[in-house]
Protein backbone atom coordinates (compact mmCIF):
# COMPACT_ATOMS: atom_id res chain seq x y z
CA UNK A 1 0.00 0.00 0.00
CA UNK A 2 2.81 2.40 0.95
CA UNK A 3 4.53 1.98 -2.40
CA UNK A 4 1.28 2.35 -4.31
CA UNK A 5 0.59 5.64 -2.53
CA UNK A 6 4.03 7.06 -3.19
CA UNK A 7 3.77 6.10 -6.88
CA UNK A 8 0.46 7.95 -7.13
CA UNK A 9 1.89 11.00 -5.32
CA UNK A 10 4.70 11.33 -7.88
CA UNK A 11 2.17 12.45 -10.48
CA UNK A 12 1.42 15.64 -8.55
CA UNK A 13 3.50 18.74 -7.71
CA UNK A 14 5.13 18.52 -4.29
CA UNK A 15 4.55 21.16 -1.60
CA UNK A 16 1.56 22.78 -3.31
CA UNK A 17 -1.59 23.16 -1.22
CA UNK A 18 -3.83 23.42 -4.27
CA UNK A 19 -2.83 19.89 -5.31
CA UNK A 20 -4.56 18.40 -2.26
CA UNK A 21 -7.95 17.63 -3.80
CA UNK A 22 -6.51 16.23 -7.07
CA UNK A 23 -4.17 14.04 -5.00
CA UNK A 24 -7.05 12.67 -2.93
CA UNK A 25 -9.06 12.09 -6.11
CA UNK A 26 -6.10 10.31 -7.69
CA UNK A 27 -5.72 8.01 -4.68
CA UNK A 28 -9.40 7.18 -4.65
CA UNK A 29 -9.38 6.49 -8.38
CA UNK A 30 -6.46 4.08 -8.07
CA UNK A 31 -7.38 2.34 -4.82
CA UNK A 32 -11.13 2.78 -4.78
CA UNK A 33 -11.03 4.56 -1.45
CA UNK A 34 -8.73 6.68 0.74
CA UNK A 35 -6.95 4.37 3.17
CA UNK A 36 -5.93 5.62 6.63
CA UNK A 37 -2.30 4.99 5.73
CA UNK A 38 -2.55 7.55 2.95
CA UNK A 39 -3.28 10.55 5.19
CA UNK A 40 0.23 10.97 6.59
CA UNK A 41 2.12 10.56 3.28
CA UNK A 42 -0.26 12.97 1.56
CA UNK A 43 0.14 15.58 4.31
CA UNK A 44 3.90 15.17 4.17
CA UNK A 45 3.96 15.48 0.38
CA UNK A 46 1.70 18.55 0.25
CA UNK A 47 3.37 20.09 3.30
CA UNK A 48 0.31 20.62 5.50
CA UNK A 49 -0.78 19.02 8.79
CA UNK A 50 -2.63 15.69 8.66
CA UNK A 51 -5.63 17.25 10.40
CA UNK A 52 -6.09 19.62 7.43
CA UNK A 53 -5.93 16.70 4.97
CA UNK A 54 -8.50 14.79 6.97
CA UNK A 55 -10.62 17.93 7.31
CA UNK A 56 -10.74 18.42 3.54
CA UNK A 57 -11.28 14.72 2.84
CA UNK A 58 -14.26 14.56 5.23
CA UNK A 59 -15.67 17.84 3.89
CA UNK A 60 -16.45 16.36 0.46
CA UNK A 61 -18.96 13.54 0.06
CA UNK A 62 -16.97 12.16 -2.87
CA UNK A 63 -14.19 10.80 -0.65
CA UNK A 64 -14.59 7.36 0.95
CA UNK A 65 -12.53 5.90 3.76
CA UNK A 66 -13.70 2.31 3.33
CA UNK A 67 -13.18 -0.01 0.40
CA UNK A 68 -16.33 -0.16 -1.73
CA UNK A 69 -18.00 -3.35 -2.96
CA UNK A 70 -17.22 -4.99 -6.26
CA UNK A 71 -20.51 -3.61 -7.52
CA UNK A 72 -20.64 0.00 -6.43
CA UNK A 73 -23.99 1.73 -6.86
CA UNK A 74 -24.30 5.49 -6.70
CA UNK A 75 -27.77 6.96 -6.67
CA UNK A 76 -28.43 10.60 -7.38
CA UNK A 77 -30.54 12.40 -4.79
CA UNK A 78 -30.35 15.83 -6.41
CA UNK A 79 -33.43 18.01 -6.71
CA UNK A 80 -34.49 16.81 -10.17
CA UNK A 81 -33.97 13.12 -9.33
CA UNK A 82 -35.77 13.59 -6.03
CA UNK A 83 -38.78 15.12 -7.78
CA UNK A 84 -38.79 12.29 -10.31
CA UNK A 85 -39.00 9.66 -7.57
CA UNK A 86 -35.38 8.78 -6.72
CA UNK A 87 -36.33 8.04 -3.12
CA UNK A 88 -38.49 5.08 -4.13
CA UNK A 89 -35.59 3.80 -6.27
CA UNK A 90 -33.29 4.17 -3.25
CA UNK A 91 -35.72 2.21 -1.08
CA UNK A 92 -35.85 -0.56 -3.67
CA UNK A 93 -32.04 -0.61 -3.81
CA UNK A 94 -31.75 -0.80 -0.04
CA UNK A 95 -34.20 -3.71 0.01
CA UNK A 96 -32.50 -5.54 -2.83
CA UNK A 97 -28.92 -5.09 -1.59
CA UNK A 98 -29.86 -5.27 2.11
CA UNK A 99 -27.53 -2.38 2.96
CA UNK A 100 -28.05 1.26 3.85
CA UNK A 101 -26.37 4.12 1.96
CA UNK A 102 -22.70 4.38 2.88
CA UNK A 103 -22.47 0.68 3.74
CA UNK A 104 -20.74 -2.27 2.12
CA UNK A 105 -22.41 -5.71 2.16
CA UNK A 106 -20.70 -8.25 4.40
CA UNK A 107 -19.53 -10.36 1.48
CA UNK A 108 -17.92 -7.28 -0.08
CA UNK A 109 -20.08 -7.64 -3.19
CA UNK A 110 -22.16 -4.47 -3.07
CA UNK A 111 -21.86 -0.96 -1.80
CA UNK A 112 -24.35 1.87 -1.97
CA UNK A 113 -23.65 5.58 -2.02
CA UNK A 114 -25.80 8.70 -2.27
CA UNK A 115 -24.55 11.36 -4.68
CA UNK A 116 -25.54 15.01 -4.34
CA UNK A 117 -26.12 15.57 -8.04
CA UNK A 118 -24.66 13.56 -10.91
CA UNK A 119 -25.41 16.36 -13.40
CA UNK A 120 -27.80 14.58 -15.72
CA UNK A 121 -31.04 16.16 -14.54
CA UNK A 122 -32.81 15.77 -17.89
CA UNK A 123 -32.49 11.99 -17.46
CA UNK A 124 -33.68 11.88 -13.84
CA UNK A 125 -33.73 9.69 -11.87
CA UNK A 126 -30.19 8.48 -12.57
CA UNK A 127 -28.07 5.77 -10.98
CA UNK A 128 -24.48 4.86 -11.72
CA UNK A 129 -23.15 1.34 -11.33
CA UNK A 130 -19.37 0.80 -11.67
CA UNK A 131 -19.06 3.76 -14.02
CA UNK A 132 -22.10 2.94 -16.21
CA UNK A 133 -24.94 5.45 -16.03
CA UNK A 134 -28.57 4.29 -16.11
CA UNK A 135 -31.11 7.02 -16.97
CA UNK A 136 -34.85 7.23 -16.20
CA UNK A 137 -34.67 4.43 -13.63
CA UNK A 138 -37.82 3.06 -12.05
CA UNK A 139 -37.87 0.91 -8.94
CA UNK A 140 -38.81 -2.15 -10.98
CA UNK A 141 -35.68 -1.77 -13.17
CA UNK A 142 -33.31 -2.38 -10.28
CA UNK A 143 -33.16 -6.18 -10.47
CA UNK A 144 -32.45 -6.12 -14.18
CA UNK A 145 -29.68 -3.48 -13.87
CA UNK A 146 -27.96 -5.36 -11.06
CA UNK A 147 -28.15 -8.62 -13.05
CA UNK A 148 -26.52 -6.89 -16.04
CA UNK A 149 -23.66 -5.68 -13.88
CA UNK A 150 -23.30 -9.09 -12.24
CA UNK A 151 -23.00 -10.69 -15.66
CA UNK A 152 -20.29 -8.20 -16.61
CA UNK A 153 -18.22 -9.26 -13.61
CA UNK A 154 -19.33 -12.91 -13.61
CA UNK A 155 -20.31 -12.59 -9.97
Amino acid sequence: MKEEISTILKHYPQGKRDALIPVLQGIQEQLGFIPEEAIAPVADYIGIPTSKVYGVATFYDQFRFTRCGRIHVRICQGTACHVMGASSVLKALEKELRIAPGEVSKDGRYSLEIAGCIGACSLAPVIEVNGTFYPLVKKDDIKEILQKEKNKLNV
Binding site: I39, P49, T50, S51, K52, V53, Y54, G55, T58, F59
Partner: peptide, 28 residues
Protein backbone atom coordinates in the same frame (compact mmCIF):
# COMPACT_ATOMS: atom_id res chain seq x y z
CA UNK B 1 1.94 25.27 15.01
CA UNK B 2 0.72 21.78 15.85
CA UNK B 3 -2.77 21.75 14.25
CA UNK B 4 -4.11 18.87 16.31
CA UNK B 5 -7.66 20.14 15.93
CA UNK B 6 -9.51 20.91 12.73
CA UNK B 7 -13.05 21.22 11.40
CA UNK B 8 -14.24 17.83 10.17
CA UNK B 9 -17.15 17.09 7.81
CA UNK B 10 -19.49 19.82 6.64
CA UNK B 11 -22.60 21.85 7.40
CA UNK B 12 -24.97 20.33 9.90
CA UNK B 13 -22.65 17.43 10.71
CA UNK B 14 -19.53 19.56 11.20
CA UNK B 15 -17.49 19.01 14.34
CA UNK B 16 -14.00 19.79 15.59
CA UNK B 17 -11.86 16.69 15.68
CA UNK B 18 -8.42 15.20 15.27
CA UNK B 19 -6.84 13.39 12.33
CA UNK B 20 -8.73 10.12 11.70
CA UNK B 21 -10.80 10.93 14.82
CA UNK B 22 -8.06 9.47 17.00
CA UNK B 23 -8.23 10.15 20.76
CA UNK B 24 -6.15 13.07 22.01
CA UNK B 25 -3.55 10.93 23.78
CA UNK B 26 -2.27 9.42 20.55
CA UNK B 27 -2.74 12.55 18.47
CA UNK B 28 0.11 15.01 17.95
Amino acid sequence: GVSTLEYMRRGNSMYIGTTLDKPMNISN
